[in-house]
């Protein structure tokens, strides 16, 4: 009887674990199912080479490039803010700051990542854009610059926290050896500690990129809804994610080609983040075995 009960419990637990596999299968098949039907109507070559994305207009074009360029533009701006600041914070906290300072500041910075993204969107549109317009009068009301900058602030803690963990895990003995030969803290940080923690730092950067690519609300609110193939940060653009939001807000018939475009866009986004996540998982596994 006891054995039977234990068996039932184990099966129940197993089922829960299998749900996670079902979710992945669900995501892939839902995206693939609708995307395949989309590609029956739209040539995959057009999808990747056409430079216009106008599925909601009468003159329909289905070129993903403008959405991709919008996604990469905002992400690139975000990373170029978050990478130097996040890395500097992590090095400062792990190599220079007193323990008590580190202990208070780290959770406060992590609070930046806990703020709902719709709040960041508000900030980008209502505060940052008007402020930047004071400096660059040509800046449009919707633009990738303020969306990217604010997104950069949001992902600072991803880089600073995970990198700091990796730097902190570098054995104290290596630092002492370097100090003992007359190196400054800065030299020790960049020549010994950062190289030793490089895999953890790379993981943090990849996670941040993946997060930036998938970020939705900031760009949906502040970057505009005009898909265009450009790297000009001052004009309105549209990202993959904000296109999905735009269609979802409108009244699009289930089963129509417009409905399927969001799945075609979704599978493109999923592929990119999947590749990034897999790389970071691989590095993390290798790095764990290196340190243990």
């Amino acid at each position: 009887m006891r054995k039977f009960k234990e068996g039932v419990i184990e099966k129940t637990l197993l089922t829960s674990a299998l749900i996670t596999v079902a979710v992945t299968i669900g995501i892939v098949s839902v995206l693939a199912f609708e995307a395949i039907r989309f590609f029956k109507e739209v040539s995959i070559i057009d999808f990747f080479t056409d430079t216009q994305w106008t599925p909601l207009f009468t003159d329909k074009h289905y070129g993903i490039l403008p959405l991709l360029s919008g996604t990469f533009l905002t992400s690139a701006i975000a990373i170029s803010v978050a990478l130097p600041i996040g890395l500097s914070i992590s090095i400062y906290l792990s190599e220079y700051a007193p323990k008590s300072f580190r202990k208070t500041v780290k959770p406060m910075l992590e609070l930046l990542a806990a703020i709902p993204t719709v709040v960041y969107g508000f900030f980008a549109l209502i505060v940052v854009t008007p402020f930047l317009q004071g400096i660059f009068p040509n800046l449009s009301g919707f633009n990738s610059l303020s969306a990217g900058l604010v997104m950069g602030v949001m992902i600072i803690p991803f880089i600073s926290s995970i990198s700091e963990d990796a730097l902190h895990a570098v054995p104290k003995e290596l630092r002492e050896a370097s100090y003992g030969m007359g190196a400054t803290k800065l030299q020790t940080a960049f020549k010994v500690v950062v190289p030793a923690a490089s895999s953890g730092i790379i993981v943090s950067i990849i996670l941040a990129i993946s997060r930036a690519i998938g970020e939705t609300m900031i760009v949906a609110i502040a970057a505009g809804q005009q898909p265009r193939l450009t790297f000009d940060p001052t004009v309105p653009i549209e990202t993959i994610t904000s296109y999905i939001v735009q269609v979802s807000l409108g009244d699009v018939q289930h089963g129509s080609i417009e409905y399927r475009t969001i799945f075609a866009a979704g599978i493109t986004l999923f592929t990119f983040t999947f590749i990034l996540n897999t790389i970071s998982y691989g590095i993390r596994k290798k790095y764990q075995s290196n340190y243990e």
Binding site: E173, L174, E176, S178, A196
Partner: peptide, 11 residues
Amino acid sequence: GMVFQKPNPFP
């Protein structure tokens, strides 16, 4: 100069 308890070569 200083030599430590555990050998601590840089990686």
